[in-house]
Amino acid sequence: MTIDTMHFTPIAALIGGLLIGTAATLFMLINGRIAGISGIIGGILRPAAGDVLWRFAFVFGLMLAPVLYGTFATLPEIQVDSGYPLLIVAGLLVGIGTRYGAGCTSGHGICGISRLSPRSIVATLLFVSSGMATVFVLRHLLGVN
């Protein structure tokens, strides 16, 4: 294994992580909710009375972030290598998988591990492993990207 020192950004990564943790903490302390993005979106598709508006507000906040950030600074590089067919298959798998497995990188990976939930620790190990296996097959066996 070789570390990609050219792209490794430890300070920015840590600061960004601290901000994400702060958002998750405030959301629990103030709103009493887990900041799990797939669960928040999923709840909109299974609407219950009085349980929908806050979800839209959170989603709107996430989408507003790059707009506000972009007015004061330059957005960091965004590079999407995958083609459209791959993006569609990937999106479907992420949608089905996060709902079936009850969480994603935020709900299981950040919030769940912080609560020391055994379910979330297992889930995170599994999706990181299958993600790494997928990239291995894609890049090193099939030569895509």
Partner: peptide, 8 residues
């Protein structure tokens, strides 16, 4: 499944 999509 989520991991596969994430990796793709």
């Amino acid at each position: 499944l989520f991991g596969i999509g994430w990796g793709l």
